[in-house]
């Protein structure tokens, strides 16, 4: 597995978290929806393009615009992007993430931020599970077989 060092920037991380919190609050205040990205993305994978499709599409368009604008404004250097492996690892990981979040009804944002903010026991169990498994996976790939 490819390993590249990254620098810890606490203020940028806190600012980013705060913006995500504002997003989640605005989405709940305006449309009563949970800002869970796996559910929002999953809801786009349907044939009928009704109101349920449209709100999700608008949110995702905003998400893409926000990422692009932040990088353009100097808040992120796209050249710093680096991956653990090639496209085959990426595809295998994507398949697992897509299936796992659909079965487990949520991801880092839906369970880890919105669910925990609602004090949901399901979200606490899910968050501890995916954090634990992801940590163990990195330990195995980087230190047991990749080390």
């Amino acid at each position: 597995m490819n390993v590249v060092a990254t620098s810890f920037e606490p203020w940028a991380a806190l600012l980013g978290g705060g913006l995500i919190g504002l997003s989640a609050t605005l989405l709940m205040a305006s449309h009563g929806k949970v800002a869970g990205l796996s559910s929002i993305f999953g809801g786009l994978l349907r044939t009928r393009q009704d109101a349920e499709f449209r709100w999700r599409a608008l949110f995702i368009l905003g998400l893409l615009a926000g990422a692009l604008a932040t990088a353009r404004a100097g808040g992120f250097d796209p050249a710093s992007l680096s991956f653990s492996g090639g496209w085959a690892i990426a595809a295998a990981g994507g398949l697992l993430v897509g299936a796992g979040t659909a079965l487990g009804s949520g991801c880092t944002s839906g369970h880890g931020i919105c669910g925990l903010a609602r004090l949901s026991r399901r979200s606490l169990v899910a968050t501890l599970t995916f954090m634990g498994v992801a940590t163990a996976t990195v330990f195995v790939t980087r230190h047991l077989i990749g080390g």
């Binding site: 600012l15 980013g16 913006l19 997003s23 800002a35 368009l61 615009a65 926000g66 990422a67 808040g75």
Partner: peptide, 12 residues
């Protein structure tokens, strides 16, 4: 909402 989320993920 999406814009804020995307900006947060990117700046962090």
């Amino acid at each position: 909402s999406g814009l804020l989320f995307g900006a947060g993920l990117t700046v962090s």
